[in-house]
């Protein structure tokens, strides 16, 4: 297991390096485009352009440029946004990271728990009315557009019923965890639920179909023949083997959300997360910010994948030797 983890970690580092090179090449070595002009933003003055060339070493060989770039990003952390008149980029990203992490991790905990409960119940009660009800609930959750659901939730909790039942709901926005778990969780509660509704349904369905498939396997019949209880058969055998598929799905979704795919939820609930930051910088064509966001996203996607790989190997002994 440790050897497996080590190998995966090295692979993850290599992937990160490859991504950084690729991103660098796209931004700085696309033929026929002057990177200085791009970094400086639209309608930049000649002085700014010169400053950019100097600061990014654009007159030097390309690998030096790469090094300079990485230094700005990770060592000096002094990458500045020209569009935004010299605002430092890294602090912006550093502020956005906890927002997105809080949103996505919280929602993930909720949707995974919901999906486990729904999937297991649907499997346990397949053939009864409970199973289709759960499946339909899941489909409804999947089909609600997140921004619409978010707006409705806001409408109800922030204005229509805000003076009565939802008086306890704080105003939109993010409150740091350092100000206490309560305020943090309360501010994020509805964003979490909104995001979780979207995924819980899909996950419950995937889990249900995996588990129902597993219930027809020989090892389930064998487990029953051993005289163990039906719930144990369901949880320790069927659920346990079905988790493998759910975990690989989770790796993809979780990585994407952390990397900015939670944009709609962030916008609707006024959360200044990575998705929002990327979106704004794209609007302004703010290249340094885009660059930082892309690399940041890549880092978390790779990290999420690494964790999922470990989880996967822990769940499925057959992959440990690969």
């Amino acid at each position: 297991m440790w050897r497996f983890a080590g190998k995966r970690a090295i692979a993850a580092l290599l992937v990160l390096f490859a991504i950084s090179v690729l991103v660098f090449l796209i931004f700085f070595a696309t033929p026929g485009v002057d990177p200085a002009a791009r970094i400086a933003g639209r309608n930049a003055s000649q002085e700014t352009l010169a400053q950019v060339r100097q600061s990014f070493g654009l007159d030097q060989p390309i690998w030096v440029q790469y090094g300079v770039m990485m230094r700005h990003l990770f060592i000096d952390r002094d990458l500045t946004s020209f569009v935004n008149r010299g605002a430092e980029v890294i602090p912006q990203v550093q502020q956005a990271i906890p927002v997105t992490l809080s949103l996505v991790i919280g929602a993930a905990v909720i949707w995974v728990i919901l999906a486990l409960v729904m999937g297991v119940l649907a499997t346990a009660y397949r053939g009864t009315a409970i199973d289709p009800i759960i499946v339909v609930l899941g489909v409804i959750g999947v089909s609600l557009p997140v921004y619409w659901l978010g707006e409705v939730v806001n409408l109800v909790t922030q204005s229509r019923l805000h003076d009565t039942i939802f008086a306890w709901v704080p105003s939109l926005g993010y409150v740091s965890l350092s100000e206490g778990f309560g305020p943090w969780a309360l501010h994020l509660l509805f964003p979490w639920l909104t995001l979780a509704v979207l995924y819980a349904g899909i996950y419950a369905r995937v889990l249900r179909s995996e588990m129902v498939g597993a219930m027809n396997e020989d090892y389930i019949r064998m487990a029953r023949a051993k005289g163990i209880g039906e719930w144990r058969v369901l949880l320790r055998h069927a659920l346990r083997t079905s988790l493998i598929v759910v975990v690989s799905l989770f790796g993809l979704d979780f990585g994407a959300l952390i990397g900015g795919a939670a944009l709609l939820t962030e916008v609707v609930f006024g959360l200044q997360g990575i998705g929002k930051l990327t979106y704004d910088s794209l609007q302004n064509f703010d290249l340094p910010v885009i660059l930082a966001c892309v690399l940041y996203a890549a880092f978390f996607v790779v990290l999420a994948n690494f964790i999922v790989d470990l989880l996967y190997a822990w769940l499925d002994p057959r992959v440990r030797h690969v």
Binding site: R221, M222, H237, R240, T241, I244, P317
Partner: peptide, 12 residues
């Protein structure tokens, strides 16, 4: 004891 030992044990 069932026919196919390949599938009779939970793989994990």
């Amino acid at each position: 004891v069932f026919q196919d030992p390949m599938t009779a044990l939970t793989p994990v």
